[in-house]
Computed example of a mutant assay.
Amino acid sequence: MAPTNDPQDSTAVWYFIAATFILTLPTLMFPDMHLAVKVAIVLVGIVVMALGFVRLRGELAARNRRSPDGPPTDED
Score class of each variant (00 low, 15 high):
residue 46 I to L: 15
residue 74 D to K: 06
residue 36 A to H: 05
residue 64 N to Q: 12
residue 31 P to D: 02
residue 71 P to C: 04
residue 35 L to E: 14
residue 2 A to V: 10
residue 67 S to Y: 05
residue 52 G to R: 02
residue 30 F to V: 04
residue 15 Y to T: 05
residue 4 T to E: 13
residue 70 G to Y: 01
residue 40 A to Q: 01
residue 16 F to T: 07
residue 12 A to H: 03
residue 17 I to D: 09
residue 18 A to R: 04
residue 3 P to K: 14
residue 17 I to H: 02
residue 67 S to Q: 04
residue 22 I to M: 10
residue 22 I to H: 01
residue 61 A to P: 06
residue 60 L to V: 10
residue 65 R to P: 05
residue 76 D to P: 05
residue 14 W to Q: 14
residue 67 S to K: 00
residue 8 Q to G: 07
residue 32 D to K: 14
residue 51 L to C: 12
residue 60 L to C: 06
residue 17 I to T: 12
residue 39 V to N: 06
residue 51 L to I: 03
residue 24 T to W: 06
residue 50 A to N: 07
residue 70 G to T: 04
residue 22 I to P: 07
residue 30 F to P: 01
residue 1 M to F: 13
residue 60 L to R: 15
residue 14 W to K: 09
residue 67 S to V: 00
residue 36 A to Y: 11
residue 36 A to V: 14
residue 68 P to V: 03
residue 41 I to Q: 12
residue 21 F to Y: 08
residue 28 L to D: 04
residue 65 R to M: 06
residue 71 P to W: 09
residue 18 A to E: 05
residue 45 G to P: 02
residue 27 T to L: 10
residue 64 N to V: 03
residue 61 A to N: 07
residue 54 V to G: 10
residue 28 L to G: 11
residue 69 D to W: 10
residue 45 G to Y: 01
residue 51 L to Y: 04
residue 71 P to M: 13
residue 4 T to Q: 09
residue 14 W to G: 01
residue 8 Q to K: 14
residue 43 L to Y: 01
residue 7 P to Y: 04
residue 11 T to A: 15
residue 73 T to A: 05
residue 22 I to D: 01
residue 26 P to N: 05
residue 34 H to F: 02
residue 9 D to P: 12
residue 60 L to N: 15
residue 12 A to F: 06
residue 2 A to Y: 02
residue 15 Y to G: 06
residue 36 A to R: 02
residue 73 T to M: 01
residue 53 F to L: 12
residue 31 P to Y: 02
residue 6 D to H: 10
residue 28 L to N: 09
residue 21 F to G: 09
residue 1 M to K: 09
residue 10 S to F: 11
residue 75 E to D: 12
residue 55 R to E: 11
residue 12 A to V: 00
residue 47 V to A: 15
residue 69 D to M: 09
residue 35 L to K: 13
residue 25 L to E: 00
residue 63 R to T: 13
residue 68 P to I: 02
residue 64 N to W: 06
residue 72 P to F: 08
residue 29 M to D: 00
residue 63 R to N: 10
residue 65 R to V: 03
residue 53 F to T: 10
residue 41 I to W: 08
residue 22 I to L: 12
residue 24 T to M: 09
residue 49 M to C: 11
residue 44 V to S: 05
residue 36 A to N: 08
residue 57 R to M: 10
residue 59 E to A: 03
residue 56 L to K: 15
residue 28 L to C: 08
residue 47 V to H: 03
residue 5 N to W: 01
residue 50 A to P: 04
residue 48 V to H: 00
residue 10 S to A: 13
residue 56 L to R: 13
residue 28 L to T: 12
residue 20 T to R: 02
residue 45 G to K: 01
residue 22 I to N: 00
residue 59 E to Q: 15
residue 53 F to S: 10
residue 39 V to T: 13
residue 59 E to W: 06
residue 56 L to D: 08
residue 50 A to L: 11
residue 72 P to K: 13
residue 38 K to N: 14
residue 4 T to Y: 06
residue 7 P to S: 10
residue 24 T to A: 08
residue 7 P to T: 08
residue 40 A to I: 09
residue 57 R to H: 13
residue 51 L to T: 00
residue 52 G to A: 06
residue 9 D to R: 15
residue 70 G to D: 02
residue 3 P to D: 15
